[in-house]
Amino acid sequence: MCGAPPAGLSLEGIDVSKETVIQGVVILDGQPVPSAYVRLLDGSGEFTAEVVSSASGQFRFFARPGDWTLRALSSKGTGEVRVHAQQGTPVETEVAISH
């Protein structure tokens, strides 16, 4: 898929023009972290969704345009990152966790 970062989840089958996609990978010391719990929090910090990162550390949300916080929780540590999402242009991000 032209233009997609190599680490990104495939967007095949998703109507990107209609969705506000936030996706990325959980990393620790540069390595992907599988089975991490990734939470999507809204602008007021309220829980909106949670997914488990894949075997390659990847996750995806379908949100709405605006500011969001991603918080990852795993037995190896926790991490947090803020992103700005917009419809039609998927956000690709990394959530780095530390002990």
Partner: peptide, 12 residues
């Protein structure tokens, strides 16, 4: 009403 489904699912 800003979202129609939990945000780990497609919204349409």
């Amino acid at each position: 009403g800003r979202l129609l489904a939990p945000a780990h699912l497609p919204q349409e």
